[in-house]
Measured scan of single mutants.
Amino acid sequence: HAATELTPEQAAALKPYDRIVITGRFNAIGDAVSAVSRRADEEGAASFYVVDTSEFGNSGNWRVVADVYKA
């Protein structure tokens, strides 16, 4: 099962156990969220919340930071 994305309210009520950072070329924010979901799932997380997204220069590469939560 894939890790689910939390709302800001849900994330605020929970304590993350880790923070992950992924970088890559994403065509849309949805693609980045899917990549975070896969990584969170690999780490055994039940859910995640994207904290920050930023573009690296003009290369089209993105850096996505997310907190991950157990259950």
Rank of each mutant, 00 (worst) to 15 (best):
A71D: 14
E9F: 10
S59E: 13
V68E: 01
A35T: 04
D41V: 15
D31Q: 07
D41I: 15
V68W: 04
A35I: 07
V36T: 04
V33H: 08
A3G: 03
A3M: 06
L6Y: 02
S37T: 07
A32D: 02
D67T: 06
S37C: 09
G57A: 08
A40H: 01
E9N: 08
R25A: 09
G60K: 06
V21T: 09
A46T: 14
A3R: 03
A40G: 03
D41S: 15
V64G: 00
P8V: 10
E9G: 08
A66R: 00
E5D: 03
D67Y: 14
H1E: 06
V50Q: 02
R38C: 08
N61I: 15
A13C: 14
N61K: 10
P16T: 03
E42G: 06
Y69G: 00
V33A: 05
S37Y: 04
T23E: 12
D31G: 05
A66C: 06
V36D: 01
V33G: 02
R63T: 12
L14Q: 12
S34C: 14
V64Y: 03
A3H: 03
Y17P: 06
V36K: 02
H1A: 09
E42Q: 12
F56N: 08
T7S: 10
V50C: 05
Y49L: 08
P16N: 03
W62V: 06
V51W: 04
H1R: 11
S54N: 09
L6A: 03
S37R: 15
S47F: 15
A28D: 15
G24D: 03
A13L: 14
I29L: 12
V33M: 13
R38V: 09
Q10L: 08
S37E: 05
Q10N: 04
S34Y: 11
P8E: 12
D52I: 13
G24V: 07
A71S: 12
A3E: 02
A2C: 14
R39L: 12
D52G: 09
Q10D: 06
V51N: 02
E9Q: 10
E5I: 07
T23N: 06
K15I: 14
Y49S: 04
T23H: 10
H1T: 09
A13K: 14
K70Y: 12
Y17W: 06
S47W: 15
I29F: 11
A71I: 11
V21E: 06
N27Q: 11
D67A: 05
A71L: 10
V36A: 07
K15R: 11
A45D: 01
R19V: 04
E43F: 14
V68H: 00
T23V: 14
E5R: 14
S59N: 12
E5L: 12
A2F: 14
V33Y: 10
E5M: 13
V68I: 15
